[in-house]
Each structure stands twice: as structure tokens, then as C-alpha cells.
Simulated assay, not measured.
Amino acid sequence: ARVAGFGPDTVLLMVLPLAHNYNLGSPGMLGAIAAGGHMVIAPRGDASTVFSLVENERVTCIPAAVPLVVNWLNDPALDRFDTRSLTLVQNGGARLSPELRDRLRKRLGCQYQEVYGTAEGLLNLTRLNDDDEKILTSSGAPICDDDEIKVVDEDGREVADGERGELVTRGPYTIAGYYNAPAINARAFTADGFYRMGDIVVKRGRYVWADGRKGDLINRGGEKINIDEVENLMLKHPALHSVALVAMPDPVYGERACAFGVLRAGATLTFEELSRFLLEQGIAKFKLPERLEIVPEFPVSGAGKILRRTLREIIEAKLAAERSQSAGPRRGP
């Protein structure tokens, strides 16, 4: 709560499901209560509902998630409300791109705080007085001095600061094991008791920069594609409201990149236009999406995370249907 600046004057607006760990205690409701603040519960997450409550209840902080932020920033209704009481918007569950972090700060005139961690323990936050580079790009630093973090390679060897690898952690509030689950514990923990976060990161000192889940990297014939990098470039296109990049199966390369996009109202976008735009942004050709799927909205979890597994299932089903159609009807002997 101290790292988020919570105190007796804190008015926390709860938009996401109350039982989710991020909303509950990262620092969330428990942090606000411990600091002597109070909470307002929003019945819905649309901009009109949320920001009318900000205006009427003098809300100071909103724990948000990527789909909420994207929708708010693209909703003209936001300009109708007085948001001067708002001092902080947090984001958790999935990393918010630097561009959207900056737009959020400027549009709402408040500070931004990235919240990163796991229900099993470790909690990282950017600090309110961090420089712009950390606030706009990093996943923060552990909230507790006793949290131990290191980055390891695929063989479990610790790598130097600035090198990519998996984040592992050990500390006073990180679990030491799952109850009565030795097989799971053997996979989830290192021999010296560090919990495997499953996230690919770069660490510099105590700060980390999340690069996505281990399974979210797209392996195109041995070339690894960082989905965050491509999505951040896609978000700069004026036609796109929100984006997601997922792997689609390929018989030659193993995986190729498929871009899903939700368009802004009245906008259109072709695959060729997207490819041309990304090349103008300086993207390496092997990282280009090789298919574009426009959808009305993304499937999201109760905590506001885009369900990438569902998107992968959608494109896999489409590819299977296309293969079936191209094969044509079977002929008899």
C-alpha cells in the first residue's frame, strides 16, 4: 500500500472481479483498508459508468487491466467527466504497452503504475517517483526488500543483468510448495527453492522488464518472435483499437504469427496495409504477421486478460476448415 501511495484519503474504485488476487491484495482492497482508505464498487466497466463514479465519489485510484484501458482511451465519453481527483491508475494481469501507458497519463492527468506478479507470491510495482523510462516500459521492482529474484537460462544457470531468461523468485510471502503435489513442485521450483514464474524477462538491478510468458513466444522455424514488440507496433496504426498476436500452426516453420485486431469505429484495414505499415516502423521481415483476423471483440477472462488460448483455437479451427475445403470431396474408386 505504501508503494502505491495509499493513505486515509484513498478512494479506490473496484472495476474488476473482487476476488481476483490483483484486485484483492496487490495492493487492492486489503491495501486500501490497511491504509485507512475506502472503496467504491463499479457495477460495470464502461467509461461512462466508471468515470461518472470517479467524478461523483472523488476517486483517487483505479486498478485496471489492458482491455479496460484500451476501451476507455477510445471512448469519447471520457471527456465529459471531471477526473481531477484521480491521482493513479494501475494496470495488472497483462503488460500494458508503453504507448498506452503514456496516453493514459496524458489523457487522465494522473500517474501510472504497472503491477506485475503472481498469486503464488512475488509482487512488483513501478514506483510513483520512478523516471519515465521505468514507468513507461518496466514491470517494476519487488515491493519487499527480502524478495529474492534472479533470471535463469533454459539450463537453470543465472544470467547477467540485461540478458533474457526466466524469472525465478524466493521470499517471505512466496509459497514454498503446492500442498501434497510433489510432481508439480518438481517442475515449479528450482532445487534451491526458487519459484519459477514462467515469464521471460530482462532484469536490471531490482527492476524487471517482462517479455511475455514462455509459451507466448512464437517460434518461426527457430526464429523467436516477441509478441509484445509486434503488438506495440501494431497499436500505433490509427485503424486499430486493440490487438493480439498469437502463434498459428504451420507444416514448414512449425509456427507463424497471426494478428488479431479490433478496429476503431468506421475504420478498415487490410493485411497488405498492416504489413506495409509495420515495415515502415522498421520491423524485421520474419516478425511480420502472416495473417490478419479482424474480430468485433476479444475473448477476455474475468480478470480482464485477453484469452490467447481461445484466439489460437479460433485460428487453428479456421486453418483446419480451409485445408478441408481445399482438399475437396473424396472420389470413389
Rank of each mutant, 00 (worst) to 15 (best):
G5Y: 00
C61R: 00
D46Y: 10
Q281Y: 03
V11F: 00
N129Q: 15
T87S: 15
A32C: 15
T268C: 00
S242M: 00
D153I: 05
T60E: 03
I225V: 15
G328C: 09
V152R: 08
L88F: 08
R276E: 12
Y178T: 01
I135R: 13
G332D: 12
L240M: 14
A321S: 11
T268I: 02
V54Y: 08
S275G: 07
E229D: 14
M234E: 06
L245C: 04
F51I: 02
S138P: 06
G302S: 09
L279F: 05
Q90K: 06
L12C: 10
K318F: 07
E114Y: 07
V300P: 07
T126A: 08
N56I: 03
K305N: 14
V70E: 13
E158K: 09
G222N: 07
R323V: 09
G5V: 12
G37T: 02
G254H: 05
M39D: 02
G212H: 05
P299W: 09
I184Y: 11
L88N: 10
N124P: 03
T60Y: 04
W72C: 04
A186K: 11
S85W: 01
R103T: 03
I283N: 09
V89K: 05
H38G: 07
L78Y: 01
T169P: 00
R58K: 14
T87F: 07
G193L: 02
R291M: 08
A35K: 12
D130V: 02
D75F: 10
P289F: 12
G221F: 09
M14Q: 10
G215T: 13
I175M: 10
V59I: 13
H38K: 14
L104W: 00
P17Y: 13
M14H: 00
D199M: 06
G222A: 04
A257F: 07
L292R: 02
G165Q: 04
L288D: 06
V115H: 13
N21D: 13
L319D: 11
L217Q: 13
V66R: 12
R95N: 13
Q281L: 00
I227W: 11
L108E: 10
H241A: 00
P329T: 05
P63W: 06
N180V: 03
M39W: 06
N180P: 01
F194C: 01
H237C: 02
E255W: 13
R323L: 15
M29G: 12
T310V: 14
A77K: 11
D192K: 02
D102K: 14
L125A: 05
L311C: 03
I41N: 04
A244T: 06
A119R: 11
M14E: 09
P76F: 09
E166G: 04
E316V: 00
A317R: 13
S301G: 14
I283S: 08
S139I: 11
G254Q: 07
G117C: 10
Y116L: 01
V208E: 12
T310K: 14
V208K: 12
L123W: 06
A327F: 05
M39C: 15
L100K: 12
